[in-house]
Design a protein around this nucleic acid. Structure first.
Lengths: 228, 228
DNA sequence: CGACCATTTGATATGGATCAAGCGATGTGG
DNA sequence: CCACATCGCTTGATCCATATCAAATGGTCG
C-alpha cells in the first residue's frame, strides 16, 4: 500500500495545472497539517491505499489527481470521487479505509499520520471541528453524487462538467485528467455513452471538445438547465 | 410519479425546556442528549423540516419511521435515507438542512437544540467525537447508497431488503413501514419495477410476501448473492 | 356496500448497454 | 525517420432492462 511507486511506471509527462485550494478547512488548520506530513510522489496508476486496509494515514493532494473507488465482485467499478490539488482524502473515523485510492496522473501527495491528527484534535477544538467538517464535506459530496446517479446520461455528464469546472482554475475550460473510463465509472455509465453524450452536447453547442481531454463550456446556461 | 403527500400540520418545535448543560462531561452520549431534547409527536406524512431551512435542531427517532428526501425541479424525488427508532437524523455542520424530512408513520421524535449539542462538544471531547462519528456514519450510509444505485433492479431490491432486515429486530422478517413509492424513490426505480422484482424474488423462493408490507427472507444466501 | 388507495400485472416504448468496427494520437522498434 | 502496434476514444448496429402507459385487483375505512 504505502510502499511508494509500485507502478509499472509509464513515463508520463506530468504536466499538472495548478489548482486553487478549495475552502474545505481553515488556513490555520491546513498550515498545521502541512507540518505533520511528508510529501510523497506517486506514479500514474499507482495504488495509494486499498479498501479495508488500516487507515493509518490521511492524504492531501499537492499536485496531480487521485481517484477513490470500489470494485464489486463481478468487476464493476464505481469511482467514489476525484481529488485535485488541495483536496484531502482518506480520512476515516474507523480503523480501515472504505475505498481504494489510486493516482490518476503522477502526483505529489502529503501523507499525514492519522494518529497525530487525532491526537491534536483531542487537544484542540478547532482541529476537532475541522476533522468533522471534512467528513461533512465528504458527506455532502456523496449526497450530490447520489442525486447525479438518478439522472439521465445527459444530465450526469452536464453535472460532471459543471462540477469539474467549478473546481478548476479556468472556469470556462476544463482540463480532464481522467480517462473516459474513469468518467464512466464515476457517473455509472459506459464509456460509449459518455462519449456519445459529449458529442451530443457538442452538436448542441453547449460545449466544444478541442481535444478529448479538454472541454470548453460554451453555454453554461444550457448545461445548468440539464443539471435539473 | 410522486405520491401526493397530504402534508398535514407543520408542528413547530417551538420552545424547549432548555436546562443549563451540566458542567460534568457525560460518558454516555445518548443518555446525555436524551436530557437535552423534548419528545414531540409527528403525524403520518407530516413535514419535520424542509431542505434549506435553518438547521436549528437535531432529531432522534423514538418510534415510527422517517424519510429524508430531495425533489429535483422536474418532480423526481430521491429518498436519502429511512430512519427507524433509535436513529439520529438532521445533524448538519452547516447552517441549513440539506434534505427535507417527513414522518412516514406516526412518530415520536426527540428534538434537540443543535446549539446546545455543539456547545457541549466544545467542552467535551467525547461529545465532539460522537458528532463526528454520526456524520461519518451518515457518510458510510451515503456511500453504500451510491453502490446500490449502480446495480440492477434485483440487486437493489435484494440489498434494500437485507439492509432493512439488519436494522429490524426480527432478522428473518421485515415489516416495511414505507410504501412502494418510497422504496422506489430510495432505489432509483419505479413502483412497477419494485413490485415486479419482489414478485420475481418470491417466485424464485428467495422471499415470501404474506402481505404487501411484510417480507419474509426465505433464502438469505440467494439475496446475499444478488447483493454483489 | 362503495370509494379510494396502494399494489400488482400486462403491453409497449425507449435510453443506455452491449457488441463490433473504425480512427487518430502516441510511442516503439527496425 | 518511418511503419506499425497500441491505446484511448468515437461511431454504428442491435439488444435488453427498466420506464411508461394502462388496466385489474385487493385492502381499508367511511
Amino acid at each position: 500500500m504505502l510502499n511508494q511507486q509500485t507502478t509499472l511506471e509509464r513515463p508520463t509527462p506530468a504536466r499538472q495545472p495548478v489548482r486553487p485550494t478549495p475552502p474545505v478547512a481553515s488556513k490555520a488548520f491546513h498550515s498545521s497539517i502541512e507540518l505533520m506530513g511528508a510529501p510523497m510522489p506517486f506514479g500514474r496508476n499507482a495504488e495509494i491505499y486499498g479498501e479495508n486496509e488500516p487507515a493509518e494515514y490521511v492524504y492531501k493532494v499537492l499536485n496531480g489527481t487521485v481517484r477513490t473507488y470500489k470494485v464489486l465482485n463481478d468487476g464493476r467499478r464505481q469511482i467514489g470521487a476525484f481529488y485535485l490539488a488541495g483536496d484531502v482524502f482518506g480520512l476515516e473515523i474507523g480503523e480501515e479505509h472504505t475505498f481504494s485510492a489510486e493516482a490518476i496522473t503522477d502526483c505529489k501527495i502529503l501523507v499525514i499520520k492519522r494518529s497525530a491528527l487525532i491526537g491534536l484534535a483531542t487537544r484542540d477544538n478547532d482541529v476537532a471541528r475541522q476533522l468533522w467538517a471534512m467528513t461533512a464535506a465528504e458527506l455532502q459530496r456523496a449526497q450530490d453524487h447520489i442525486m447525479l446517479l438518478i439522472k439521465t446520461a445527459q444530465e450526469r455528464v452536464a453535472g460532471f462538467l459543471l462540477e469539474m469546472a467549478k473546481r478548476s482554475a479556468a472556469a470556462a475550460e476544463v482540463d480532464l485528467p481522467m480517462s473516459r473510463q474513469d468518467i464512466a465509472d464515476y457517473l455509472g455509465l459506459t464509456i460509449e455513452t459518455v462519449s456519445r453524450t459529449l458529442t451530443q452536447l457538442e452538436k448542441g453547442a453547449a460545449i466544444a471538445v478541442p481535444s478529448s481531454r479538454r472541454i470548453v463550456l460554451r453555454n453554461r446556461a444550457a448545461l445548468t438547465r440539464l443539471n435539473a
